[in-house]
């Protein structure tokens, strides 16, 4: 240990600590933009990851499908019972859709918060340190991906685009504990109530939907969808189902626990949703940022 604090090493240690703190400070400042060398490394690593990932995922899917075979019989029975209602429902939907279009034509309202364009992507990696719930996908700026777009699976919303590089981008999952992870959401019912999804309850495995008025009686199993009022997400993406409600710290509003419908672990293909309706400019949104 005696030669540990010789001059040369001490200077090396001090400079590296200064460099370390400086780098962290630099990277905490800019949240969504990656610099050119960063993008280069991201794309190179991403390319290798995506090559390796394909066969590995094939093997995984093979074993998963073996597992599915066991439950196939039960599932088949259940689905057969369900499909009888389906015909009736689809006729109804058709009718409603036509009616909706006619009414829109009468009102001359053409754009809608629900209008979207979709990009398909698949996952190439997952962050191994697991502090931040982040996954990486094989589409980037070249494919029209931008920051803060909504990312969904067929089951429901899973997160938003965090950092975009040329050919890859990272997705921040809903379960991520970061403060900027907020989504404007609605409990769908006779009368819609808007709130904000802020945070994730690790113990109950549920998202926290805050600022719902206390007089609103929340019922179990009510669906929670995006409201489109945050500026970037389109309206009507399914997030999850209500499990329970509890009053918040001050008793003025209530916090609703929402069980996400999408599976955050067994994800293969995802869709990135861009709403076609223009978003309000950044200056209008609060400087706090990150509200979708």
């Amino acid at each position: 240990m005696s030669n540990f604090f010789t001059n040369k090493r001490l200077i090396l240690l001090l400079t590296s600590i200064i460099l370390f703190v400086g780098l962290i400070g630099y990277s905490l400042n800019k949240r969504t933009k990656a610099s050119v060398p960063e993008k280069f490394i991201k794309d190179t690593v991403g390319l290798v990851q995506s090559i390796v990932h394909k066969p590995v995922y094939g093997v995984k899917n093979f074993f998963l499908s073996l597992n599915d075979l066991r439950t196939a019989y039960e599932e088949n029975k259940y689905l057969k019972a369900k499909i009888e209602n389906y015909a009736e429902l689809s006729v109804k939907i058709n009718e409603l859709q036509n009616e909706n279009e006619e009414l829109r034509a009468i009102l001359k309202k053409t754009d809608d918060l629900k209008d979207v364009s979709i990009v398909q992507a698949s996952i190439i990696a997952r962050s191994p340190d697991q502090w931040h719930d982040v996954i990486f996908i094989n589409k980037g700026k070249q494919h029209g991906i931008k920051e803060n777009m909504a990312v969904i699976t067929p089951k429901g919303l899973i997160g938003k685009i965090k950092i975009v590089s040329e050919f890859t981008s990272s997705v921040q999952l809903l379960t991520s504990p970061e403060r900027t992870n907020r989504i404007s959401a609605t409990i769908s019912g006779k009368k819609a109530y808007h709130g904000l999804i802020e945070g994730y309850d690790e113990g109950k495995k549920a998202l926290l939907l805050k600022k719902i008025p206390t007089e609103y009686k929340v019922v179990k199993k009510q669906k929670v969808i995006t409201s489109g009022l945050g500026g970037v997400f389109p309206e009507g993406l399914i997030i999850g189902e209500v499990i329970e409600a509890k009053p918040d710290d001050y008793g003025l509003t209530q916090t609703v626990l929402v069980k996400p419908l999408a599976d955050f672990y067994d994800i293969d293909n995802i869709m990135i949703i861009e709403r076609t309706m223009p978003s309000p400019s950044k200056d209008i949104l609060s400087s706090d940022g990150g509200l979708e």
Binding site: L19, G22, L23, I24, S27, K42, V45, A125, D129
Partner: peptide, 16 residues
């Protein structure tokens, strides 16, 4: 450093 850039986006933690 590659780990930081690709996975964590907080540069320097794992490199250091």
């Amino acid at each position: 450093f590659i780990y930081d850039i690709f996975y964590t986006d907080i540069l320097g933690i794992y490199a250091f």
